[in-house]
Amino acid sequence: MKKLILATVLAAAPAVYAQNPALYECIYQYDVTGKTDKGDISDTFNCMLLIGEESSKFLDYTAFQLDSVSAIKGVSDDVIKEYEERDLKATPYFDRRMFNSSSDNKLTTISTMAPFSYIYEEKTPLIEWKLSDETQTVCGYECRKAEGEYGGRKWTAWYAEEIPVPFGPWKLTGLPGLVMQAYDSDNIHRFVAVSFREGNGDVTPDKIPNLVKIDHKDFEERKAVYDKNPMNSINPSDIESITVLKGKGGTSTFMINGTIVRTLEKGAIPLEIVEGKDKDE
């Protein structure tokens, strides 16, 4: 079993040689507050944006740490295992990896619905931003305000012109500066930069094996249903192996065929509201 885990970890890790170095990295605090049909959610997570010259990568901070550790040559299996377990125990709320290539005008999303990992692409820009002259300081940088709509939510973003990249957290990209803070009009999802520093990671897209290509809408529709009850959505005939890791407070994390099954106690509130469904509020 250990071999399986390790194989997954190593496969999921970015290439060891930095082809596309991250010049800077930005840590965002990601707050989710709202209601699902299972109860109230009020949680705080950390996400990481790796910023390269032409591209960016956005992922959960724990997942990023795991990547970093795995990418170091000569790290013992025990250490990788420890981070792997940490990753599993602290079930990531943000279970996606976003890769944004500015020169190709392309945004790639990789996410899982156990037992498979899926990939879809979108053409950028995704959002028609309305800029305004309001300013505020976020994480030491003067930011300007912009508003736009995507995925059924109205977003307000604060971007720093001083950091001249069209990147930001999740899909909140395409502004003339790094997005340092963003929130939707219902104040359910909030991203705020808490640390901007020199980067030492890599912005190359993750080489995850056996990715299933899917259409954007199709994925988000299925994902919203899947997140409500992951275990019910899994086709038993697809299951080859299950690993169960006991976490804190009686929660369990499953890995099916080496893919994490994120079981959230209170469900999840999607960042994107899929059309034809009620607004998840």
Partner: peptide
């Protein structure tokens, strides 16, 4: 380089 800022941990 751009300035590095860490607004204390949340």
């Amino acid at each position: 380089q751009l300035k590095e800022v860490t607004v204390k941990a949340p």
